[in-house]
Design a protein around this nucleic acid. Structure first.
Lengths: 353, 353
DNA sequence: TTGAAAGCGCTAACAG
DNA sequence: CTGTTAGCGCTTTCAA
């Protein structure tokens, strides 16, 4: 155990904090007693600021400072039935994509006194449903979920909660309430158009479990539809289980090419996988993009490294998080932000396709 | 707005959920009334399971299911004075480092019914202090903070809260309560030893603001001390403001080399910066490691990409988060985990140094 | 094994 | 502008 005599690394000491109350924290009532007012007046000073004389307010503030009072939001939320808690459920923290979204959400919530509470679904809709049920017991003021696909029961729980819900990342579908994201089908189609414009015709796909990463599935759908519109179709696909990663992309491309040596372009489910593919090509002496074109999705920094910048489609992740949170807050104030907000994507030409 | 008639994308409908109670959620009292027992009995079924007849339990469970009851944890936490909330404050979500730690924390907390609540300090100890003060109002059961350096007032608030505190990532210093991490000084010294063993003598450093990233500062300290032990010292350093990133590392190395053309090795504050440096070398035609050796810190996947694998020191980020959360929970159960847990680091030789 | 009473710390609603 | 009253929904404590 750390002794109390331990010196903090800072040279200067903080002004002495009031002694902690016996057996618990300072309450509103103690502050009220010290200030010689009622608890309601203290409560008003803490929130309204209005409807309280400057003189009273000063007395109360002095008492708060003297006692080192910290409000109890559990009690406040219970009494007012407003928690200012926003539940955010993301599929993964395994690459930078959802942390970027979280940063955007946090940036918008924090200055407004709202608190994000995070859950990780591991790309599993049943786990997401269970998380929603658990989180419901905190009586959050709003919800932000990844994707438009959820179990029927999850949708019902959310609708029954009667609070604003923003589904992020995707706009290809019908939102429960509001959606902020981009069209993954369009992103897939965009990359197909690029491959086709380059004269590529023997195209393959490398990805993870499409039953789990539903947005990757939509990108592939858009990609294939664009091919079909030209009378073409995907020559081959390699779907590997497990979390997407460099290693997975590398091994998958190797297997794909072993079975289908004639391919001249491969679309990957995302940038991590594509970079893995690029590594395989470097080590196997496959000329990129001369012999084989490679492309991913997300526009991660990792794609800028390497001898060749990765051809990909960038997603506005931070902005999606920020706008989602803003719309949620607007709704909480009685506003009516758009049901669907398409923030679009950016085609990044790169040097691999 | 989304109409209620909107069809969910799933073919199968969920079993009908009970109609939401007028003006609010179902309460324990309603469940008790339906089951024909007291609220205490329902409460016991929900938590103890013990001290309740199987028959009574079944009645209660049926009532819970029929009403679609969701417990109100605000009320429960207020009454019991135990929230099962763990506040986690990290400096940044800008690269994968802290999301990895968060994954580990979440993996350990979630199955035990604890909930992580996240705050981002932006590498600013004053902002961290403010976050601690704000978060305190949720009366969390424990705290996980990054680093051993905090404002004196932050330390006091934490100590006064009388709940377990785990400081993660670093073990070079005196923890408030418990620490789980690695020695950054040792990590820096380790890389210096590697440079020296390669015969490098004209060494430089590229990093961000050392007053903010205090662990990077400790690594540099360890690096320099190892040089001094051999009668050597750092020839040059380039410190750039702003978040660490590829671009920053690239520009910084360029400036460093312009001012100090004779360097034969550069230590970077982390892998992102180092990869940026490697990019500069590739584009400027500088042979790595022949002409110039480069090394980073963290062991990110990004270092495995590129023609040459980055020489670096890997940190056990996920494991740090996991162990930190485990120690916190142990303490909450009356256990006494070690005050300091050094999880070590892994030297990754790579091909750039 | 079950229940009754009391209260956690705060705020809504109303009164003055 | 300030105070009083009455809970929010749950758990603790104690009694039966």
């Amino acid at each position: 155990m750390t002794e109390d005599s331990t010196l903090p690394p800072h040279a200067d000491e903080a002004p002495a904090l009031p002694a902690p109350a016996e057996g618990g924290a300072v309450t509103l009532e103690e502050v009220a007693a010290l200030a010689g007012v009622s608890t309601m007046t203290v409560s008003r000073v803490l929130r309204d600021q209005a409807h309280v004389t400057a003189k009273t307010r000063d007395k109360v503030k002095a008492a708060i400072a003297e006692l080192g009072y910290v409000p109890n939001r559990l009690a406040g939320a219970l009494a007012s039935a407003r928690t200012r808690l926003i539940v955010v459920i993301v599929p993964s923290l395994g690459n930078i994509v959802f942390p970027d979204v979280l940063r955007g959400i946090n940036a918008a919530l924090e200055p407004r006194g709202f608190q994000a509470v995070m859950g990780i679904s591991d790309y599993d809709l049943d786990k997401e449903e269970r998380l929603i049920e658990t989180m419901m017991s905190w009586r959050p003021s709003g919800w932000i979920l990844a994707g438009l696909e959820h179990t029927p029961r999850a949708r019902q729980l959310l609708k029954a909660s009667r609070c604003p819900v923003v589904e992020v990342m995707d706009v290809d579908g019908e939102p429960i309430d509001m959606a902020v994201g981009l069209s993954h089908r369009a992103a897939g189609a965009r990359m197909a158009a690029h491959f086709l414009a380059q004269g590529r015709r023997r195209l393959g796909y490398v990805g993870g479990d499409l039953g789990r990463d539903l947005r990757a599935a939509k990108r592939l759908q858009g990609f294939e539809q664009a091919l079909q519109a030209q009378g073409l179709s995907l020559c081959a696909r390699e779907l590997a289980g497990g979390a997407s990663s460099l290693r997975l992309g590398r091994g998958s491309l190797q297997r794909l090419l072993a079975a289908h040596p004639g391919l001249d372009g491969v679309y990957f489910s995302n940038d991590d996988m594509a970079m893995g593919g690029l590594m395989h090509c470097l080590h196997a002496g496959i000329a990129v993009p001369g012999q084989l074109a490679l492309a991913g999705f997300n526009g991660l920094e990792i794609g800028e490294v390497a001898p060749q910048r990765l051809s990909t489609v960038g997603s506005p992740r931070y902005e999606i998080g920020q706008v989602a949170a803003q719309h949620l807050l607007q709704r909480l104030e009685g506003g009516q932000p758009p049901a669907v907000t398409d923030l679009g994507f950016e085609f990044i030409a790169g040097e691999t396709a």
